[in-house]
């Protein structure tokens, strides 16, 4: 009796969240799928999906003229930039998270705040700030010239796009790893040391495997938004690197909703499959290691 009422109360308190989740997560996803598999008269079709894999265009890079699969090329380009950004975030973020987790509490708080401050700024403003820094006559080159060093050309290159992505998504890599590391039992590290492991071994055999859950969520949180970003590449890449996010935006702006939805849908499926594979790999590694 008592149990029943409490479960009813529980369900009632959960209602707003359920409504929220259905309205803003499930319904939009259903719409994306619906649009992806229909044509402009809302008749079922797989044309949009096939178009993604088969559409071709001609590329003339001045030397050779080739015919390529438009969207597959765009997707691979997005994937490459996103993976590079994610790897850089991980390489920088992992040691930082480790140092933070071992630092005195006060230092931890200061570092956390420093990492989060950029997140309080608007995404567009951050990207514009990087434009002014990286421009050929921007702050960076002004600084280099002042030091009598050769100015560098960054804006409009892949590097600029990667810098932008790394800057924007770096906190999403550090924070999940940090939270796992901070919870790591110091006695486990002592135990490893006690059992004959020098420092690097402790890192490889205890800290790393135990921090994998944090690394996985960090990688997910950086890879997913950076693979689908469009604004950074437009502003920092001078529009030279057309990414999958740009493609979706372009189709959307051109009022080609069904194809935009199809690209979004395919991207989503690919990402989900990747995540599932990663999770599986990590699980197996955990058991075997």
């Amino acid at each position: 009796m008592n149990k029943k009422t409490s479960s009813l109360v529980q369900r009632l308190t959960l209602t707003p969240y359920s409504v929220w989740a259905v309205l803003f997560i499930v319904v939009p996803l259903v719409f994306v799928a619906y649009y992806a598999f229909t044509d402009s008269s809302f008749a079922f079709t797989t044309d949009n999906i096939t178009r993604f894999f088969t559409a071709t265009s001609v590329v003339d890079d001045g030397e050779t003229v080739r015919e390529v699969h438009t969207y597959l090329v765009i997707f691979m380009r997005s994937l490459k930039l996103a993976v590079i950004s994610t790897v850089i975030c991980l390489l920088m973020g992992y040691p930082l998270a480790y140092i933070m987790a071992r630092a005195p509490e006060k230092t931890q708080k200061i570092l956390l705040t420093l990492i989060m401050i950029p997140m309080w700024m608007n995404f567009l403003i951050r990207t514009y700030a990087w434009m002014t820094i990286l421009q050929d006559k921007g702050i960076l080159n002004g600084f280099l010239t002042a030091l009598h060093l050769r100015p560098v050309h960054v804006i409009g290159t892949e590097s600029a796009v990667i810098i932008g992505m790394v800057y924007d998504y770096f906190p999403y890599m550090v924070l999940p790893i940090y939270s796992v590391m901070a919870k790591l039992d110091v006695r486990l590290l002592e135990a490893a040391s006690d059992l004959g492991c020098p420092g690097p071994s402790v890192l490889r055999r205890v800290i790393w495997p135990l921090s994998i859950p944090g690394v996985l969520s960090g990688v997910t949180m950086v890879l997913v938004p950076s693979i689908s970003t469009f604004y950074i590449s437009q502003k920092l890449g001078n529009g030279k690197f057309f990414l999958i996010g740009d493609a979706i935006e372009g189709q959307y702006v051109a009022n080609n909703l069904h194809f935009a939805a199809a690209i979004a849908f395919i991207l989503m499926v690919i990402l989900l499959v990747c995540m599932a594979l990663m999770q599986k790999l990590a699980n197996r590694k955990l058991i075997v290691a």
Binding site: E190, D194, V206, L210, A289
Partner: peptide
């Protein structure tokens, strides 16, 4: 510690959960 010929049974064991 890793070079000492001494081993420890820790308070609450400190077993490797992974």
């Amino acid at each position: 510690p890793y070079k000492r010929n001494v081993n420890t049974v820790f308070q609450r064991y400190a077993l490797f959960p992974h």
